[in-house]
Write a protein that binds this DNA or RNA. Structure first.
Lengths: 213, 213
DNA sequence: TGCTGTGAAGTGCTTCACAGCG
DNA sequence: CGCTGTGAAGCACTTCACAGCA
């Protein structure tokens, strides 16, 4: 069994599906399923069987021919391939409603994505304690990133302040940004931004609904 | 100018981008930009200019040759094409932490996606008032859907109860479901489910980060 | 025999390139 | 002249089909 990534380019869609496979496999694991073959796994994920096999094959040979995949080891292999079998330390910028809701969402922490410092530029918020974390001034970001080994920045500011928050993160050397603000960010090539837009989903539902009334 | 959908199939990716265009166009509108051509719009959205023109062309001819697109009318045209220029009434199932956070998120309401009834199967929660709404028993869903003209169901239960919630929604005739629970749903073809998984984004960040360390 | 892993074929989205119009 | 709208080309992802192995 080989967990090295084959040097090929891996489609972004594959990464997203791998996250789904983990979700579904953990469900099977809870039901004490020990071995599963690609077709039932695919069905549970709403995709094609070859798709599953091809996605997994990007990262190694995890299966047993004639048998299938052992569930628990496969979960570990996928997590390791994705790099989510370790902790990630994150900084959150923007301690408003949305920011507080994210801090509340304990599932992040459970999965190893830990918000270890929070920032705001509102002087009235600085110093406040939210979910056990002191709100720091955004100017201190660079120091804290170095001090706390932060690798991911989460932006939950209002849209008009998102670009400035991104600039602070980039100045601090952060190249991975999760952006909850409804704004596009101007960033250099080497910075990876993921945009979370709750409305994409609703727009897709609305569009489909009116197409087939 | 023609706002009829040409009968062609419209890629899902196009719908997602249209949501982004609206976001970016609204930003331009706030800055009093009145006309914009495809290339600057595309750049602000992180896509190709032809992509923008082709996406828009699925729904009609919104531009002026030699000039570009008038921002405000374009916003309205896109919204109308997507079906988000009207109100949508939604039911939320699962009034836990996540459900409450969603109720808090006033942006939904502002954009016309209104949660008008909330449900839970926990007898201790039924009758409680959350954000001005009484928590109803999930058994009453069918009646309320009819009574209140609900068209979209939002699932924010724990994963093990998501399928049951979906069943209740489908029994009530709902065919559009937004699922925040980390579980895949078994649904017939005619039901449209959008899965919101916060971890997709984080997994993508983690994967990319470890690829280019 | 049964299921994985994978080249080859198929499909659909994206980009190009330019005709057409304001 | 400039920018849109669009057929055609290019590219990437998905599915098929089967060789290969447990």
């Amino acid at each position: 069994m080989n967990t090295q990534t084959k040097s090929k380019h891996i489609p972004r869609a594959t990464i997203q599906r791998l996250a789904t496979y983990v979700q579904v496999l953990e469900h099977f694991a809870r039901d004490s399923v020990e071995v599963i073959s690609s077709n039932p796994l695919a069905e549970a994920c709403g995709v094609n069987g070859s798709q599953v096999r091809k996605d997994l094959a990007y990262f190694g040979e995890f299966g047993i021919r004639g048998v299938g995949y052992r569930v628990q080891p496969l979960i570990e292999s996928i997590k390791s391939s994705l790099g989510v079998n370790r902790d990630w330390r994150m900084a959150l910028i923007g301690v408003g409603n949305l920011g507080k809701a994210l801090l509340n969402h304990s599932e992040f922490r459970n999965r190893g994505f830990k918000i270890v410092a929070i920032f705001d530029c509102d002087p009235f918020k600085i110093g406040e304690i939210v979910h056990g974390l002191e709100v720091y001034c955004t100017r201190d970001l660079k120091d804290k990133v170095r001090l706390l080994g932060i690798e991911i920045g989460v932006i939950s500011t209002p849209p008009e302040r998102a670009q400035r928050a991104a600039q602070h993160l980039m100045d601090a050397g952060i190249t991975s940004i999760l952006n909850y603000a409804p704004a596009r960010l101007k960033t250099p090539e080497n910075v990876h931004v993921e945009y979370v837009d709750f409305f994409h989903y609703l727009y897709a539902l609305a569009f489909n609904h009116q197409q087939q009334p």
